[in-house]
Every structure is written in C-alpha cells, then in structure tokens.
Simulated assay, not measured.
Amino acid sequence: MTAPASAAPRPGDLEPRPGHGSRRWRVALLGLGGASLLAGLDAALVALGVWAPVPAAHLPGVHGMVMVLGFMGTLISLERAQALRQPWAYLAPALLGSGGITLAAGLPVLGQLLLVQGAAAFLAVYLALWRRAPLPLVAVQVLSTIPALAAAALWFRVDLAALIPLLAAFLVLTIAAERAELAQLALGPRAVPILLVLSAWVTGAAASALVWPDAGARLLGAGLLATAAWLARDDVARRMVRTTTGLRRYNGAALLAGYAWLAVAGLVWLVGGAPGSDAAYDVVIHTTFLGFGVSMVMAHAPIIFPAVLGRPLPYRPILWLPLALLHGGLLFRVVGDALGRGALWQGGSVVTVVSLLVFAASAAWCVVRA
C-alpha cells in the first residue's frame, strides 16, 4: 500500500483517471481480491476443524497462496497498476485474483499458471515504474516481486512450506520499500542505504533457505528482525500514535502493531531456524502475513481504497474493532501454540478470521455512510 498514513487523499485521487480503466473495472478487480479473501478465510476454518461455509478438503492446501498472492497480491498490484496508469498493468491484479479463485475452486494447475502469469505481470508493472523513475527505492520494489514470481513458479515442484521464506520476502520488502518511499523525511537520509542492505539480505536469505533451510531461515529471521526494528524506530508511527487525531492514531497503532509481529516472526526464525514443529510453523506464518501484512492493509485502507474505488472511505472509530480483533485473536493463537494448541489456539484463530470479515463490513459501511 503506497499512500502515506499521515496524508489525506487528494481530490484527484478520488476520481477515475482517463485512459487506464474505469471505476467499474477497478471495483471488479478489487472484488477478485475480496473473493480470494473469502476463499482463504473459508480454507482457514476448514484447517481449524470448525464449521466452514464450504468444507472442501483441498482448501487448506491452497490457503497460503490464495491469501498471499490471491488476496494481498491483488490489492498491492491493483494499487501499483493505478499508479502506472496503463491499461495493460491491470492484467497483474486480474491474473492474481483469478488464480486465487481458481485454486479455491479445485483447479490447481490452472490456478498455479494464473499466479505465475500474474506475478510476471506484476514484475512488469514495477519495471515500467522503474523505467519512469529509475530510483533505488523503486529498484527495491522491483526486487520484491522476484521472490513472489519464484514462489509461484517453484510451487509446481516444491512444497508450499518450503516457499514461505520467499513469500515473506515478497510481502516484507514490498511494504518496507513503500514505507521508505512515503516517509523519507521521517526516516532520514540513511533510509535508502539501509533499505538496500536489508532488501539484499532478506532476498538472499529467502533464496538460501531453499537450499539450506535451517541456515537460510536464521538469516531471514535476522533480516526481518532488523527491518522491524528500523521501521519501528524511524517511521512516523510512534509520533502518530501519540496524537489525538483519530485517523493518525489509528494508522500509528496499526503500523506499530504490525512491526511488533514482524519482530516476533524474525525472532522465531532467528532462534529456531527452519520450523521443526507445527507450532513454530504456525507462529512464523501468521505473525508475518496476518500480524504484519494484514495490519498494514488495515492501516492504509482509508487512504488507498478511495483511489481504487473512486469513492471516499473516511475514517470512522468502528475501524478500531477489526484491528483489535486481529491482534487480540493473533495473540491468543500464538499463546495457544506455545501451550500446545487446544481451545485457546482454535478460538484465537477463529477470531482472526472474524476480524477480516468485520474489517470488510466496516470498510463497506464507511463507504456507504460517506
């Protein structure tokens, strides 16, 4: 997500821009990401062993890719296509969203092919943005899509569990690069050199984890921990959370909570290496993609969604509810993992699913009220 958390949408951002897709098409592409989200949440409920609307047995096996590339990949690539303002750029979110839905529908080979094509189109979008502005920060954004493309392509032959470091590198580098782009004044002149070092470290560590799982995981953990510490120290979130303005405080809280969960993921990888138990695997996945990734989505929704929807999504206090449910449920889930699963783990997991549904409903309500 690429709008500064401290800024309000500009009037021009709320209107459809000519020549690069109408509001209706953008909303339809956003709907593909939303459908992937619903499918991924249904898959999570099936994996938890609780009631699910569609109790298909294949869903838990595709849950990770549906959520990371089908949902988050669609949202991020849609916003980047909006920035490029070229009709072909919308192929990236269209292919990624379609891939997520196809996987959920039980067509694995077609779904995997669509994800590979979508990740390749996403890389092309970033390359076009880099040609427009050949800056180091944009180069890091280009680099961030390479692990996503590699993970989608390798999934034909490699188990999904082994590809988690690549997917984590994609998400973390994408968000870190765009936070650095948006908050350069707050992060200071050292932001770009620091980000370049961290991006090279995280990418190399994620790649090495394919060959040397334990050593690569520890290197990745160190990189994620350093990234979280850097963002928490230098980003504007600490100042924003101390303000009395609703949107600024909400954004600051969501950012800081996300950085804290990223630090937890990095620490678990650094200390434990490649996850050797279901509990450790569960912790690193959900602290990275839920605690960090989804918290970033919630933080920027009032800023980014208006540019995509063509309608304002004003901040309302109700947005605190899904944010609290997300982090509270994830805390119960992690504690449950430490205690050997059980009712606490299952209950916390269900709460995180509910948090995303409440967030979608709250965002829709804010749009309607606007």
Rank of each mutant, 00 (worst) to 15 (best):
D13Y: 01
P16E: 06
G19L: 12
R23D: 00
R24E: 10
W25L: 14
V27P: 01
L30Q: 11
G31S: 06
G31I: 07
A35M: 10
A35E: 09
L41M: 08
A43L: 02
A43K: 00
G49E: 09
V54Q: 15
H58M: 06
L59I: 11
P60T: 10
H63N: 02
V66T: 14
G70T: 15
F71A: 04
T74E: 00
L78A: 15
A81M: 11
A83G: 02
L84E: 04
L84D: 02
R85I: 06
Q86A: 07
Y90D: 09
L91H: 08
L95P: 08
G97E: 13
G97W: 08
S98F: 06
T102F: 00
A105R: 07
G111W: 06
L114M: 14
A119D: 07
A119K: 03
V125E: 07
L127H: 01
L129I: 02
W130I: 09
R131F: 09
R131Y: 05
P136W: 02
A139C: 00
A139L: 09
Q141H: 05
L143S: 14
A148D: 14
A150Y: 04
A151Y: 09
F156A: 12
R157S: 10
V158I: 10
A162V: 00
L167H: 14
V172T: 15
I175F: 14
R179C: 14
E181K: 04
L182Y: 00
L182H: 00
G188D: 08
R190G: 09
V192I: 13
V192P: 11
L195H: 06
V197Q: 15
V202H: 01
V202E: 02
A209I: 11
V211A: 15
P213M: 15
D214S: 05
A215T: 12
A215E: 15
A217I: 13
L224N: 12
W230D: 11
W230H: 13
D235I: 03
D235F: 03
V236I: 14
A237R: 00
A237Q: 06
T244F: 08
T245S: 12
G246V: 08
L247N: 12
L247H: 14
R248Q: 10
A254I: 05
L262M: 14
A265R: 15
G273C: 08
S277Y: 09
A279G: 05
A280L: 09
V283E: 10
T287L: 07
T287S: 10
L290C: 03
G291M: 01
V294P: 01
A301T: 12
I304V: 15
V308D: 05
R311F: 06
P312Q: 08
L321R: 07
P322M: 01
A324Q: 03
A324F: 05
A324T: 07
L339P: 04
R341D: 08
G342C: 00
L344M: 11
G347W: 03
V351W: 04
V353Y: 03
S355P: 07
W365P: 00
C366K: 01
R369L: 04
